[in-house]
Every structure is written in structure tokens, then in C-alpha cells.
């Protein structure tokens, strides 16, 4: 989340790599302290960062390194890992370049799952973003009950995936209320059912995910809009700008950083999307709305194929990393240079 705020020094969030590449920042004092002060400084740093770093290394870094190690082994997760067989890059090959029966059984479903992740990213940008922005712009004004409306729209975000999943399962049941409504309108519900139809399942899942996460985007945008200077809007209005021109020329550009950071979070979230997909039927009976993470769990761990599952996890990590770094370098960098100009 957010808060690029304002250091005004080009130190946006999540841009560690870039900042270090740029060398010492302008105006950062060179180490002027004498030796014992330096030791004291390091002690202070240790005191502040130490606890967080320790917890992080033990509970995140070590297990993650273990997962990387597993990915080079054939291991059924039942016998001890010490007895597992080293297979080099076989697990990666099976996921990405499987041939013959392996292509059909492993590579194709994996690439399908991966393409779903990217479709979700594209759809989020093409559907969720404009929709959330539009709603935020429309709601960005005073009217009675505004607070209540904002609270309600944001509410799905705080509901757990389990609860959301159970709820939508009841509603989108083959004979549930959604089917009845659609049929009352003279239409047909999907032939295989909402979630399990090969063609509709993905869209249904995207709808449920959007239901849960659209409110977050709206609230983030509203918060961004609440910070846009009213003087600017007013000045534009006096110059004869229409409502839409004010939105297009002032509000939208000024919440650009908020939008870009939402997009970043949305992309990372889309790549890692798991809980929701899992709670709805583990990516679907035919993988019709599987994601890389659900594929990893279903074809890796639930099949006692831990080495393979770990390889998928590593691939997912690498993709997130590349996408994140790319996004930061290309898009978020602009925010920082814009800031510099200001």
C-alpha cells in the first residue's frame, strides 16, 4: 500500500534497488562521525532493525530457501527429505517445457493457470480500474449518507476469503438465487454451472474477486481524491471547466501516484491470487479458473509432489519479482522524477 508521500528526495516506496543504484542521495551527509560514534550508530541500527530482521529471516527467508532447495528434488513429502532424490532442473522442465504426455499433463495446465493470472491483471486494469475510478469520482462529493456508503462499499475487503467463498457458493449454486434470477429474465445460466462451466467459470471467479476487491480500489482512490487541493478544482471551475474536464485534467492526474500504486498492488495480488480461488473449488474441476498458486497447491502438494510444487513456487516468485521490478523501473520511476520536478 501506498504512501509515497513526500520525502521529496526521490525515495518512493519499493524502489530500493533503484535508489541504491543511483548512489548516495544528493544532500546525504558523508559519514562525518568519529569512530566510536559510528559503532554507536551501528548498535542503534541493530537495535532498531534487529528484531524485525530476525523474525523475518527465521520465518520467511529460511522457509523460502528451503522451498528453493526442495525444487531440485523428487520428493513425495512423505519420506524424509534427506532420502529424496536430486533431479536437477527436472521439475522446472516439467512445468515449462514438458514433452509428450508430460506436456498435456503438466505444462499445458500450468501455462493455462499462468495465463489466467495475466488475464486477471489485464481485466483488473481494463475493468476494475475504470469502474473504481468512476465510482470514486462520482462519490467524491458531499451528500447525505456518504460515510455510510463508503463504509458499505469497502466492507467486502474485510471479509475473509473463506466467508466470501462460502457465501458466493450458496448464491451461485446450480439451483440458487442467481440461477433463478437469470432464468426469470429469460436467459440461461451457464451449462456447467456458474463456477464449473469451462467457458464461464473464469468470469464468475473474476466477478467474485472483483466483488471483494473493488471496494479497496474505490476507497484508495477516494482517499487520494480527498487530498486533491480544492483550490485547484475551484480555480479550474472559475475558468469555465466542466465537471468532466476537472476530473480529467486535475483529479485523475493528481491521484496518478495512488492509481499506479494500486495497480502495483493489484498486479502482485493477481500473480499470487490463491485463497479465493482455493476456497471456491481449488481452481475448478478442470482448472478453468486455476491460478499459478492454486496449481502449485493442487498439482504439487495435494499430489504429494513436493519438489514439483516447490519449483512452481519458485517460478511464481521469479515472475512476481520481474514484474515488480519492471513496474517499478518503468512506471513508478516516473512518479519519482515528477516529484523531483516539483
Amino acid at each position: 500500500m501506498t504512501f509515497t508521500t513526500a520525502s521529496g528526495k526521490g525515495n518512493g516506496p519499493v524502489v530500493g534497488a533503484k535508489a541504491s543504484a543511483a548512489g548516495p542521495r544528493p544532500g546525504s551527509p558523508k559519514n562525518k562521525q568519529p569512530g566510536n560514534a559510528s559503532a554507536r550508530k551501528w548498535a542503534e541500527i541493530g537495535l532498531f532493525v534487529g528484531p524485525a530482521l530476525l523474525v523475518f529471516l527465521v520465518f520467511v527467508v529460511y522457509p523460502v530457501i528451503s522451498a528453493v532447495r526442495y525444487s531440485f528434488y523428487k520428493w513425495n513429502g512423505v519420506k524424509q527429505f534427506s532420502e529424496a532424490e536430486f533431479v536437477g532442473l527436472d521439475n522446472y522442465r516439467r512445468a515449462l517445457f514438458g514433452q509428450g504426455i508430460f506436456k498435456k499433463a503438466y505444462t499445458e495446465p500450468f501455462l493455462t493457470a499462468l495465463s489466467h493470472n495475466f488475464e486477471i491483471i489485464a481485466l483488473s486494469m481494463a475493468i476494475q480500474l475504470p469502474l473504481a475510478l468512476l465510482v470514486a469520482l462520482i462519490l467524491n462529493r458531499q451528500f447525505r449518507g456518504r460515510t455510510v456508503v463508503r463504509v458499505i462499499i469497502f466492507a467486502p475487503y474485510v471479509l475473509s476469503e473463506v466467508i466470501t467463498g462460502v457465501m458466493w457458493f450458496v448464491i451461485l449454486d446450480p439451483n440458487g438465487i442467481a440461477t433463478r434470477i437469470v432464468e426469470a429474465l429469460g436467459l440461461h445460466s451457464p451449462a456447467g454451472g456458474w463456477f464449473e462451466d469451462v467457458h464461464w467459470g473464469f468470469w464468475t471467479m473474476f466477478f467474485v474477486v472483483s466483488w471483494k476487491y473493488l471496494g479497496l480500489a474505490i476507497i484508495l482512490f477516494l482517499a487520494g481524491l480527498s487530498g486533491v487541493s480544492k483550490e485547484l478544482q475551484e480555480a479550474a471551475a472559475i475558468d469555465g471547466a466542466s465537471w468532466w474536464q476537472i476530473q480529467r485534467r486535475i483529479n485523475i492526474p493528481l491521484i496518478g501516484p495512488t492509481i499506479r500504486i494500486w495497480a502495483f498492488l493489484s498486479i502482485i495480488g493477481s500473480i499470487q491470487l490463491f485463497d479465493m480461488v482455493w476456497v471456491l473449488n481449488r481452481g475448478g474441476t478442470q482448472g478453468q479458473y486455476s491460478t499459478v498458486a492454486s496449481y502449485m497447491m493442487d498439482k504439487g502438494f495435494y499430489r504429494s509432489d513436493w519438489g514439483y510444487g516447490s519449483a512452481i513456487a519458485v517460478i511464481m516468485f521469479l515472475i512476481s519479482l520481474v514484474v515488480a521490478i519492471g513496474y517499478m523501473l518503468v512506471i513508478l520511476r516516473r512518479d519519482n522524477s515528477t516529484t523531483a520536478k516539483n
Binding site: 501506498t2 521529496g8 487520494g224 487530498g227 493528481l254 516539483n342
Partner: peptide, 9 residues
């Protein structure tokens, strides 16, 4: 959220 532009002033 963000809006560095304003935060200077």
C-alpha cells in the same frame, strides 16, 4: 495516500 505534489505545501 500519496499526492506528493501537495505535501510540500
Amino acid at each position: 495516500m500519496t499526492l506528493k505534489t501537495n505535501s510540500r505545501r
